[in-house]
Design a protein around this nucleic acid. Structure first.
Lengths: 153, 153
DNA sequence: TTCCTCTTGATACACCGTATCATAAAGCAG
DNA sequence: CTGCTTTATGATACGGTGTATCAAGAGGAA
């Protein structure tokens, strides 16, 4: 039931895994597919529910968390730590290494858009952090927003 | 056992509450004091534990969450949503209205520094967000960092 | 006092995440 | 193929985070 483009993304994900000596097993692939096809971030338990519904099986939470961690380590999935939810990376099919993404989270409808913020701005941010005596470790930002639809009611 | 400066902050917090018609009750004040005196963010249950130890009473979770929500609504406390922890605001004694704060969270020792980021940078950030068709609702950033001590081992 | 509002208590529960031990499946040496 | 090792997954149980709901106390206003 996946769209052709979902299949393309999964194929590319498969390649990425193989190229690093990892295996995109059927369960891993299926969880990634669920996230790709979702129009909003899913909690771990929502992922489990959808998987169970699809497969008729019953995946234990531990397995789901392990698989999600795997997908994150391969940069196929991002965790939104402010929401405890997971989203498929929007750039799986990009050839070039992309820098860390930022997320715009609509506080009304929960939809999330993954964007790349201008490097100059991120540099300025890192500079502010350094002035305070800290070092920026990750530039993944989760920004509290309203999407266009929700903004106009 | 509070230092004089803690008392000053509590007095100022009291004033802020009264000026908006709210009451800083003894429990609210005590929870705020615990957070002020802590050198790192505390989870709700850590706050409860410390309160119980101090008072010999047993505060139910619901009460703690309500009190924390109250303190947040008065801008006396911030919630770090990426960590599910709470910190006292660093600017309670500031007279001027301060804009939203950003937090540098050391991934190694968990200490948190509250800073104000240059308005120009935040504007640039908001601009990037608008280009993506979203509106920035809050500029509270939680940045994954290393503090100076942890960076040098 | 009586009423109203705000604050706090108490119980129960739902959701998020992990520790631990066990099982299965896939590669690899001999 | 056999046996060994590594990796992936299952199963159970538990702890941490947060909320729904109903009840009780505390303080002020008429």
């Amino acid at each position: 039931m996946s769209s052709n483009s979902t299949q393309n993304v999964l194929d590319k994900a498969q390649q990425k895994c193989v190229s690093t000596g990892a295996k995109l097993t059927s369960k891993r692939s299926r969880l990634l597919e669920l996230l790709i096809d979702s129009d909003k971030p899913l909690s771990a338990y929502e992922v489990i529910d959808r998987y169970n519904q699809f497969s008729g099986q019953s995946m234990p939470p531990m397995s789901a968390y392990r698989i999600l961690d795997f997908l994150i380590s391969k940069q196929l999935v991002h965790k939104l730590s402010s929401e405890n939810k997971y989203v498929a990376c929007s750039h799986i099919t990009c050839e070039h290494e992309h820098s860390v993404a930022q997320f715009l989270i609509c506080r009304s409808c929960q939809k999330v858009k993954e964007i790349m913020i201008d490097a100059g701005i991120m540099q300025g941010l890192a500079h502010s952090v350094e002035e305070a005596g800290y070092q920026l470790q990750s530039s993944q930002l989760e920004l509290d927003c309203l999407c266009q639809q929700c903004a106009t009611h």
